[in-house]
Amino acid sequence: MNIRIPKNRWEALVRLADMSADAVKILFAELAKVPPQKFGPDLPDQIAESLKGSGIENVSVIADTLFSLIPLLISSGKPVNEVVEELLNAIRNQAPSGKNLEEDKIEQLRANLQKLLRVPSIYMGAKATSVLTDNQSNFLSARILTDVRPVFELESTDVAAAVILHNLKISFASQGDSEREFFVSMDAVDVQSLISTLQRAQQKADKLQKIFNETNLLLINPERI
């Protein structure tokens, strides 16, 4: 596995290597409280807020870097210890000039990563997000712009009637692409058809939720703002 370490991650990796066993224990305990559905881009700041006064510095940066390693762990399909060793080798080989980690720091980083990458709820949240978004395209947002268009009388500029037209804009992201969008025009019948389709989707989800509740199987619905 070819691991490339971005320059903006070095400082956080150094701080991870500097964390004491007690600090790692505190961070692990805080991460373990997080439900899988809470995993998302705002989580590092939320963890930092929760650990104010703990004496651990740069929690948000450390957590963000830690979370950035989990997709690597997921995609590799390898055990944590193997991924950590490959990451440590990359750190040895790619360290910027003057920022090489001494072996005692490498050992401390190994122990810290072995611990923190094994937080079950964080792994499950990241894994669920990975499975949920592993599609050709993913929905981002929608907006409807409504227009009234006049219908003119024959051979006249007098308005005889009007029609209502809805323009639906869908924003989406495709793998390897930035945000894209497309537009589709709809009349009242189309809008009702779309509403009915979405309602059926919600009904299906509610029934599946009930089945999961009855079997005590966790259903992860990532929260988004």
Rank of each mutant, 00 (worst) to 15 (best):
D187T: 02
V184R: 03
L154K: 14
A162W: 04
S156V: 00
S156L: 00
E179T: 05
T157G: 10
L165A: 05
A160M: 09
F182N: 07
S171K: 15
D158W: 07
V159T: 00
L168K: 01
A160W: 05
F172T: 07
V163F: 06
R149D: 00
S171T: 12
S171F: 10
R180K: 15
V159K: 04
L154F: 12
Q175H: 13
A188Q: 12
S171E: 15
P150K: 00
T146Q: 04
F172Q: 07
S174W: 05
F172Y: 14
S178M: 08
A188L: 15
I164Q: 05
A188V: 12
S171C: 10
A161W: 02
D147P: 00
S174M: 15
F172C: 11
M186L: 13
A173Y: 11
S174C: 15
D177A: 08
A173V: 15
R180Y: 06
I144C: 07
M186P: 01
E181I: 09
R180Q: 15
N167P: 02
S178L: 09
R180V: 11
E155L: 12
F182T: 08
N167C: 07
F172W: 10
V148T: 07
K169M: 11
D187P: 03
V184G: 08
F182R: 08
T146P: 03
V163E: 05
S174E: 14
N167W: 09
D177T: 10
F152D: 02
I164N: 03
A161R: 06
D158S: 12
D147Q: 04
D177Y: 13
Q175M: 13
I144R: 00
E179R: 14
R180E: 10
F152G: 00
N167M: 14
D177V: 05
A162Y: 08
V159N: 00
Q175V: 15
N167Q: 13
A173Q: 15
F183H: 15
R180T: 12
V184Q: 01
G176D: 08
E153N: 07
H166K: 06
V148R: 00
F183G: 06
H166R: 02
S171P: 03
R180S: 13
I164F: 04
I170T: 06
E179V: 13
I170C: 03
S178E: 14
S156E: 04
S174T: 14
I170K: 00
A161P: 02
E181C: 08
P150V: 01
V151L: 02
F183S: 10
A188I: 11
F182S: 05
R143S: 06
E155F: 07
D187H: 10
K169T: 15
D187A: 03
H166V: 04
S156K: 01
D177F: 10
A142C: 14
I164P: 00
A173T: 12
F152E: 01
A161G: 13
D158F: 08
L165M: 12
D158R: 12
S178A: 09
F152Q: 01
